[in-house]
Write a protein that binds this DNA or RNA. Sequence first.
RNA 1: GCCGACGUAGCUCAGAGGUAGAGCAGCUCACUCGUAAUGAGCAGGUCGUGGGUUCGAUUCCCACUGUCGGCUCCA
Length: 577
Amino acid sequence: MEEKENSKENLDILRHSTSHLMAQAVKELFPEAKIAIGPSIENGFYYDFDYSPGFSEEDLAKIEKRMHELVKKDIPIIRKVIKKAEAIEMFKKAGETFKVELLEEIQDDEVSIYTQGNFTDLCRGPHLSSTGKIKAFKLLNLAGAYWRGNEKNRMLTRIYGTAFPDEVSLNKYLTFLEEVKKRDHRRLGKELDLFSISDEVGAGLIIYHPKGALLRYILEDFEKKEHLKRGYQFVIGPHILKLDMWKKSGHFENYRENMYFTKVDDVEYGIKPMNCLSHIMVYRSTVRSYRDLPLRYFELGTVSRHEKSGVLHGLLRVREFTQDDAHIFLRPDQLHEEIMNIINFIQDVMAIFNFEYEMEISTRPPKYIGTLEDWNRAEEVLKEVLTTHSIPYEINEGDGAFYGPKIDVKLKDAIGRKWQCATIQCDFALPERFDLYYVDSDGKRKRPVMLHRVILGAMERFIGVLIEHYSGKFPVWLSPVQVIIMNITDAHEQYARLIYRSLVNEDVRAELDVRNEKLSLKIREGVVKKVPYMVIVGNKEMETDTITVRVRDGEELKSISLKDFIGRIKEETILRR
RNA sequence: GCCGACGUAGCUCAGAGGUAGAGCAGCUCACUCGUAAUGAGCAGGUCGUGGGUUCGAUUCCCACUGUCGGCUCCA
């Protein structure tokens, strides 16, 4: 095989071989370490070890050094096919219990093993022909990982690394990792003064600062308008509902470990982890005719979920968040069209933010409510909609909500990372549990279907993704501060104030910087804040009754009229640019 | 929740068994200066919280809490 080629397959082989190389180095340095599994992954590879003293950061350097030595020795990597029983015997002797466990589950009579020097690993392969073919690699970090990904199993130590065909592409990747760090929403959130998280307040709870709150209001405003346009009605429900409601819905049985509870006058209440129950109550508040459907109830609903402490992550995984949540009650015959309406909605919104996306259908999980028949029906509808509109999708077995299957939308940000935000869930169970009905054209009571859906998902997560997607450089329509007006000396202060006033009166989000500071300092601060426009006024502008605008990318608009500038911002706001 | 690392001034980070520093930010003063940091001075910390070891701990040990990298889980 031509090993220089940079195809995905060859990269996989290279990385897989590098993971074996790492295991070989580890076994030489720490003979008592047991090897588990070591595959190639998206951007590199890892290998799991059972080594009770654990590895330290310094060990990583040592291991890396030994790997380089092994590369120099150019040890041949030899594939051999042997009887399974023989392999079991061999790994038993070597004390590699994890390999024995893997072997015992293999159905075939024969297995392949790969040997390089004194190191032998059970492996399907393929691999490079010798360690000397490995050119550029780096060990990145240490982590704990459960054996076979099950939290009931032993915790192993995982070493992550990456490998490339040459130093140049390795360095390119490492630079990319630095770039990713720079656009981290936690870092930008601090630098742009958008939000904070305080251990005095509690883990996973977001405190929005003025600019972050403004950004959120802008998004919420956008959402409300879009929902009204598409036939949704606003509703608002309480944050706590009696425990009996959660028992009836199945949440207590299936979702309890994620819920918070409280007591009011000796009556137990659950703090809502989802918004559906209030929306159901709105539906139930009167008799519904088949003519009324679909009924679309929308709420920017704040929910609280007890997420495990280890999973919290900035704005992306929090314990209290606000969903752009809607529940749609409809007749079964309307399902197809309504799901398509939602998909169109999602497509429109994703286009505005310049996100690409992929769809996924998640099927029935082990813990579920409702009948098998309904589940199959619901799963069929979801598949049918995507298929008839030739939308490609993947199947995610067993990952549905406990009340129904769902279509998940994974959006792709500016640097190709995937995030789950939008989801559409099809639910036959809750209408049943709450005995929802509508009166059909034949005068008979019929059961409606319920769709749960979000578009942005959670405001917190979406804002976090947006920050990283735009690297903090929000488009004009989203920027909390669109313009900063700066004067050059005190002599231009009044003129600057005038300009500021005019912009604010035209609904432009403007700030005024008339501090007695050098222009270069004001500009620097404006650049650091990533403000789209800086308006500069001095003698020239005052004399000609114009302004000078410095655009975020550095471009200068000299001596333009205030009117033209306002027109430009307004246009960008309307067009959502 | 689990494995590992970490938690020092508003922020970014140094430091050491004998009760702490830098840069930036802040405040004061001077400078009125046209496109990424003007200069000088001042102030600012019970070194995450609670125990323990020690003559003495912020530095060593334990617990808790939070953060970070992962695992599991998820909007």
